[in-house]
Design a protein around this nucleic acid. Sequence first.
DNA 1: CGAAGCGTTAATGTATACAATCAGGCCCAC
DNA 2: GTGGGCCTGATTGTATACATTAACGCTTCG
Lengths: 215, 215
Amino acid sequence: MANAADAAYAVIRGSILDGTFAPGTRLKEADLVEFCGVSRTPVREALRRLAAEDFVRIQRNQGAQVKTWSDDDLDDLFDLRALLEGHAAAAAARQISPQQLQRIGGAIAEMDAVLASSAPQAEQVAQFLRLNRVVHETVWEAAGSGRLQSMLGRLVEQALIAHTARHYSLARVAQSHHHHQELLDALTAGDAVWAEALMRGHIRAARLTLKAPLP
Amino acid sequence: MANAADAAYAVIRGSILDGTFAPGTRLKEADLVEFCGVSRTPVREALRRLAAEDFVRIQRNQGAQVKTWSDDDLDDLFDLRALLEGHAAAAAARQISPQQLQRIGGAIAEMDAVLASSAPQAEQVAQFLRLNRVVHETVWEAAGSGRLQSMLGRLVEQALIAHTARHYSLARVAQSHHHHQELLDALTAGDAVWAEALMRGHIRAARLTLKAPLP
DNA sequence: CGAAGCGTTAATGTATACAATCAGGCCCAC
DNA sequence: GTGGGCCTGATTGTATACATTAACGCTTCG
């Protein structure tokens, strides 16, 4: 990351994702110059890029603020995610490689280990989320559409912002885990219809988690 | 458009869409400064924006070039379009307003008139494409998802670049026209399944047109 | 004759200075 | 007392100068 603009982008984006810049926060260029340690030019470039990716909202002469998501927005977002992830799962079922299947299988096995461990719950959830990402990204990759992959990456990260400062319950995590296991069966069987149905359900369940986390 | 950056964006984007900047063309910032009549800063901003929207490709220290689309890319693009436009059509069928139905009906009636006229063929096709856009945009709008709307807008425009300098045959245009008419029936009936199926077929047919135009 | 290394140059990347614009507060008039 | 208009400060938008990078052609050596 020799680039000042890329560095600024990474810093700001990371700070939005980890909650340092909460939704609604006004992002002044001068402050970000200090925060990122680069001049205004790359900071502006980073902000424009983040705006294009829907992480921030820019109004003319009024600067940028971290985007806020209404409940309807999130419904909308998860509807699209269900559609696109379902599509990806179906495509993946038709053409996934043994290596990719193995990667998903490995991630699921690791999840097993994580959930069986006696680590602190927060740690377990964090590990699970990382592995969850591996599973999903492998499915996208197997779907073989770069465009679909980048769209989904963005959608997922937008959903993540809304998650910030909320924690998943282990009960929901376990539910997700079961989804993944069954998804692996569907992918292994090459059953596109099954895989798509499972994935759509999986995403819908995730939306519900966000709305009303289980205890 | 009091903005220099917006102006540059509009000029460059327009020139890409109308074929002035053909796919693969290297876009040097200095040249664009002259072309757009603004300084490098807004030109750069415009290029970054166009890159985010997949109109150009930017490599570090190597500037921007108009994106080229392989046949596989286009297949990919139209697959996604079929999925998303189908989804939009289904959603629209469930909740479209009388005003929106009327707008689509009006556009179709105008298409009738255009096709029945004795204008030059190129003129007929151009008019038809404009009305075609009205029909589709109304469907997206009726679907009620801003995110879906912007995604589709982008996908369609990317497809348009590939069309440049190619002309549609009247035969294909007539086929599209029939699709639109039946789509209006489905939307009026509020039949989401029908609308989705029609739209998916409509997009698939469009892909074929691009691949092998009818005489 | 070919290939590798270096220098030049033309382009992009970054910083900063200047211009335009908007928000907020103050004052004045009604 | 309240509303409107103007002024001021802060912030973003634009231009330009400087730094850095990589591509290209030249030279030179094997």
